[in-house]
Design a protein around this nucleic acid. Structure first.
Length: 483
DNA sequence: TTGACGTTGATAAA
DNA sequence: TTTATCAACGTCAA
């Protein structure tokens, strides 16, 4: 007992990866640790209600996602408690990295002004005070957290890593959110992310096996000092007011639910073996044509490697099974593909400054697309009840129905349901025309004028840029010759 | 160097 | 109802 209080203390900082199974960061943190502090920092940027948001939610997440996260935290806490541990929730007043640093070591680096002087209200306003008083008592010797490739996370984690290393704390950041290490894939591809699925597949080999050690117990948390034992807040406590009208999605967060859903899907071995994504019905909502496991993978309630491993198990017992890209494993590989491309592409989430962004001539028709997958319009009938009795042949264009039909369906267009805002045919043609013009003018700017190459802009380009640019120009010239 | 291909979808033509 | 065409470009095989 004496040893437990003096032995090395480790912190596992949880962000995504909200699970006990296949959690290399948790596994590394508990090894040799006398005390283990499993910490999650409530991030105001992610959780604080944003009054300016178009629908209820924070600046970064909608209410459904906020709720899913809170449910996942509740479940994780319960699962840790069964192993003699528990989840320690910290509130960041503003910056998550500051909160983690403060918990790692007695922090005098960022004295916060008295709360009364700050224009802060609500759940997150009282945060840092607690952390400052507990900090020095934890004596963390080792910090483990799962690597995260998103830009916001990279900046946040660098700050924490730099601080921890400078403080003599051992830092371990395994890759376990994706099947593969995106940085390693990019390395193997010569420093650039593979930009087609096929090239990604040819580089990727077999993903690592999941770490599936069954724990009977985890090291105790030990003395939490002055730390206020904070339960997982409710959305109401976070400051989300009148949400009684909000429909709560049927998908509950958490590792327990994730594993249950996965088992349920994988039980039907024939369905698993025959799964082909393009053959699924995207309009199916009562009985989805997919596993609906992606939100669980996103928060790491389910390990993608464990899921992959379990699918392979089913394949082994099947005579025949589908292959990537359409198969279930193919879907996991798509996820890895996009994580890799986004990690290796600056400004991936924007058109501006995004070198691989293709120019968008695709206009989806709200009429044609629906008719193809859901000719009876069941989706519309469910979510827009006023249209539920509209005959099948008019369900996608109810304004074309004769008045007698509209009356019979108890839905007069212009009264019970609005008239079309635009005429799709003319609007899409106009859009297509103007996008074409904008695209053409943009491209022409990039072509050096005859006999007078604009080497000014070319000088700034790397070899790769020149190749890409020249080949585009060649194609454009070829096209204009053909015309 | 060239041509074919890719989780594609919309639309016009046949 | 089926088929051809378009629009983009990285990648790979020929």
């Amino acid at each position: 007992m004496e040893a437990a209080t003096t032995a090395t203390a480790a912190m596992v900082w949880l962000r995504k990866g909200l699970r006990v199974h296949d959690n290399p960061a948790l596994d590394a943190a508990r090894r040799g640790a006398g005390r283990l502090y499993p910490v999650f920092v409530l991030d105001p940027r992610y959780l604080r209600p944003d009054p300016a948001a178009a629908s209820p939610g924070s600046a970064r997440a909608g209410l459904a996602r906020v709720r899913f996260l809170l449910e996942s935290l509740t479940d994780l806490d319960a699962r840790l408690r069964r192993l003699g541990s528990r989840l320690l929730l910290l509130r960041a007043r503003d910056d998550v990295a500051d909160a983690v640093c403060a918990a790692l070591k007695d922090v005098s680096i960022r004295p916060s002004p008295p709360l009364s002087m700050q224009n802060l209200t609500g759940f997150f306003s009282s945060a840092v005070g607690y952390i400052l008083t507990i900090a020095s008592q934890w004596n963390i010797g080792k910090l483990c957290f799962e690597s995260d490739t998103e830009p916001y996370a990279l900046a946040r984690d660098k700050k924490v890593t730099d601080f921890a290393m400078a403080s003599g704390i051992e830092v371990f950041t395994p890759v376990s959110h994706t099947l593969f290490d995106p940085a390693e894939i990019i390395n193997k591809n010569g420093g650039r992310p593979p930009l087609t699925y096929q090239s990604f597949i040819s580089i990727a080999e077999e993903p690592p096996e999941p770490v599936m050690e069954e724990y009977s117990e985890l090291p105790p948390v030990g003395d939490t000092g002055e730390y206020e034992l904070l339960p997982v807040p409710t959305v109401e406590e976070l400051g989300y007011g009148d949400i009684s009208q909000e429909e709560i999605p049927p998908f509950r967060g958490g590792e327990t639910e994730a594993l249950r859903r996965m088992k349920e899907s994988l039980q039907n071995k024939e369905w698993v073996a025959k799964f082909e994504k393009p053959k699924g019905d995207p309009s199916a909502f009562l009985k989805p044509a997919t596993t609906v496991l992606s939100p669980y993978l996103k928060f790491g309630c389910l390990s993608s490697r464990y899921f992959y491993h379990c699918i392979q198990d089913v394949y082994r017992s099947a005579r025949n099974y589908t292959k990537p890209p359409v198969s279930l494993t193919g879907q996991l590989l798509w996820r890895d593909f996009f994580y890799t491309v986004s990690f290796g592409t600056p400004n991936f989430d924007q058109m501006k400054g995004n070198k691989i962004c293709k120019q968008y001539h695709r206009i989806y028709s709200p009429i044609t697309f629906g008719k193809k997958y859901d000719p009876n319009g069941n989706y519309i009938r469910h979510f827009i009840p006023v249209l539920k009795d509209m005959p099948r042949e008019y369900i996608y264009e109810p304004w074309t129905a004769p008045l007698s039909i509209q009356k019979k369906a108890k839905c007069i267009i212009g009264k019970d349901y609005p008239k079309p805002v635009v005429d799709h045919e003319t609007a899409s043609k106009e859009c297509r025309k103007r996008m074409g013009e904008a695209y053409a003018s943009g491209r022409l700017d990039a072509i050096p004028s005859k006999g007078k190459p604009s080497n000014l802009s070319q000088r700034k380009m790397s070899h790769g840029d020149q190749d890409a640019s020249n080949s585009s120009i060649a194609k454009l010239l070829k096209r204009s010759r053909a015309e």
